[in-house]
Nucleic acid binder design. Structure first.
Lengths: 336, 336
DNA sequence: AAATGGAATGGTATCGGTAACAGGAGTGAT
DNA sequence: ATCACTCCTGTTACCGATACCATTCCATTT
């Protein structure tokens, strides 16, 4: 293992002081072009690599923005992540990503770990957390933002949409089409919290419309997948009898369920309608296309990025928590 | 913004020295249980948060392992990432993730950025990089590992499989089933480098078997999606005439293509076989199931994790670069 | 020639943990 | 009582980049 090359070494090689090296590499204007060239050459020759850790330590600014996501393998979260990365890279901020796997205890451990890196902002997916997580984040002195949800009691800032209201769009639409007996298919509400909100929203909307109680199905721990949807339908037996609409917590589940229904010779949507959520690519493949809800995953990322950048940059660290709502949009497919 | 609480503050509050605080919080055995309790209480009371940046600076060990992935929204990469995270968290290592979006220049920028964080190991997806990237990583004094590929000239360590050979499995299988005129559908080879390898492997295998030249199709920049597959088929016109097998670069593309073929009334596999790659969930949904290749995304993650942990932990920093190959496995579906 | 001003560069202290060593109190053996 | 030894705690220095202030050097003005 070779000795680590530092600014001191570069300085010695270039015949200047470390301070000058620092300025030269930082493109500070108070350095002669010639000096800069000498320094750059020395740095290249020695294979110098800038040390962000030391910089972060000295400046007490890590350059990190911590983000927790339930899953990495989800087109919508990926979309948010991508938009966020793009927006924050302008502000020289780097995402420090943690995956919770839909587990609040894992989230808590992750939050501890991420906080220790002194992030300049903390972004959580969802509005439900352990008490400890909440306490940790309430005490922290950087902006905290919850996204993808509208928590009853936000920790601080929020960029999200109401999962319950979004699902009501689906229910209203189904009711308008004359469907009355709904089943809801999703993951265990204890693990998929946004899914649970959707479930609640659907049930509430059905009740509001005076429809019979929605029948609840649960395929196990989040995330619910295509395979879950398909297997559920295949093994449902008489559970689906009497239902004229199967409301699914997400497009993949809906796609799997619909594939299994079609395979079993059921007519979609005539015998039974199927709806999804999230406007994933899968909703637009195959026949019929899925009726679903576009939630604006990318706008969420952009809005979060702008909000965070604003909160950090201008020292406009508004003590008033910002709460930005998005309005999910119904996408009509042929499945309903 | 409140003042940052440091070990000094905790020490003062607990009536001990900072060193004792350090030891107490680190669960060092050389501290009385009573002292530890006092310290812990003081830390909790003040809302102390440990500073990994300072620790990393002092110890010259960041605790980071840098990883670049082409995309976050891919079940196989996600699987590798998850396995890797699990393995490395045992070793108290945290992943620092960078997404290249299948762009080698983006990868280069990312590598610079990640190197500045002084990672203890560097993991790249794929074996093709810009010259600068290679040079940067050759000069670095931490283990470097390329995965998901078998580069002709590895930078250092490798855990991967031959994309070309994996695709040959498909071609051999198709030939055995009597298919002769192949089309290959994938993203632009200049952007999807592992896809390009698969393309090359398929063409080579066809040639080896004395079959007619494979017809090449290209749906644009990576990643190729379901929609690309479907749209390609819909707009292919006579391009597909005469082909009896459509080899796709990945399952999503294959699924989209197959859906469009079925929609157009073509019999799969009797008129035209369709094959995928990667054994994604989508391969097992719908009819027929896709013939595909299981590459072992999770084992890759586990092997990479173990290798890295071994290289770092035991100071067995083997100067002999490790190269671990996986053997992809053909998965027969009804689509071929 | 001396004074002034501005631009470029250097010296030094510092951020928060912790390795390495130093020291002090207590215990047990001789 | 003395010594050796253990166990716990404290002191000091340091990691690398950079803010802050001091200093040098030159050009320009009086």
């Amino acid at each position: 293992m070779t000795e680590r090359v530092t600014m001191r070494d570069v300085a010695a090689a270039a015949g200047v002081s470390p301070m000058t090296v620092s300025r030269a590499l930082k493109q500070d204007s108070s350095v002669t072009a010639e000096t800069r060239k000498t320094v750059q050459a020395a740095a290249d020759r020695l294979g110098y690599v800038y040390d962000s850790t030391a910089q972060a330590f000295r400046a007490q600014r890590s350059g990190f923005v911590a983000v927790t996501l339930p899953s990495i393998n989800n087109a919508n979260f990926a979309s948010t992540h991508k938009a966020l990365t793009a927006r924050l890279s302008h502000a020289k901020l780097q995402l420090l990503l943690g995956i919770t796997n839909y587990d609040l205890d894992a989230e808590e451990r992750l939050v501890r770990q991420l906080l220790a890196r002194r992030p300049e902002a903390f972004i959580l997916t969802g509005g439900t957390h352990t008490d400890v997580t909440r306490k940790l984040l309430q005490a922290v002195d950087c902006p905290v933002l919850e996204m993808w949800d509208i928590p009853a009691q936000p920790i601080q800032h929020v960029v999200g949409f109401s999962n319950a209201e979004a699902m009501a769009l689906i229910v209203d639409h189904l009711a308008q089409r004359g469907h009355r007996r709904f089943g809801f298919l999703g993951a265990n509400p204890g693990t998929d919290l946004r899914g649970a909100e959707r479930r609640r929203g659907a049930a509430q909307a059905a009740r509001r419309l005076g429809l019979p109680d929605m029948v609840q199905f649960d395929v196990g721990p989040a995330p619910a997948t295509m395979t879950h949807g398909a297997n559920f339908v295949r093994n449902a037996g008489p559970a689906l009898e009497g239902l004229d609409a199967l409301i699914c917590v997400s497009d993949p589940v809906a796609f799997g369920a619909m594939a299994a229904l079609v395979e079993a010779g059921r007519q979609v949507p005539d015998e039974i309608a199927v709806t999804g959520f999230g406007n994933f690519e899968i909703a637009r493949i195959g026949h019929p296309k899925l009726t679903t809800v576009e939630v604006g995953a990318q706008p969420i990322g952009l809005m979060v990025g702008d909000l965070i950048a604003g909160l950090l940059d201008a020292e406009t660290r508004s003590l008033v928590p910002q709460c930005q709502h998005l309005d999910p949009r119904l996408i009509l497919g042929g499945s309903s």
